[in-house]
Amino acid sequence: MPMNDNAEFRPKIVAFCCNWCSYAGADLAGSSRLTYPADVKIIKVPCSCRVNPMFILRAFEKGADGVIMCGCHPGDCHYSTGNYYARRRMTLLFSMLDYIGVEHGRTRVEWVSAAEGVKFSATMNEFVEKIKSLGKNVRLGDLRCRS
């Protein structure tokens, strides 16, 4: 099984980051030179509530091995309530994904403020390790998309 050969496995990870908190947190991690693996690619969204479950399904379909969504801490949403909507949607989506075989570890929600560069980098390091331990995602992938 190639899955055990984790040293070679470089996962594809999509991170949805809220413009007001975690995107700035990622910037702070960058300017503080706090490293995390290059496997993580960030997509900026105006708020975590902009993340449509469809985007996450799409990522898995296109071959992502893990998807993480970062938003403002509960109570700190720039739009007052957006992260609450996101939290509920993701809870439902993740349990559905788990049910169909995309393990819980492949999806994650984390609250990271603009001041938490350290937390951002630590979270990404942890998440990449977790995905590496889970190996390549085989569920949901659209075979037509495989190269």
Binding site: I43, P46, R50, N52, R58, A59, A64, C145
Partner: peptide, 19 residues
Amino acid sequence: DLQGFSNRQIIAEVDAICR
């Protein structure tokens, strides 16, 4: 849909990253 962050735009980004 949200102008500047439309469904199609975000999906295009997802696709580009997972390509």
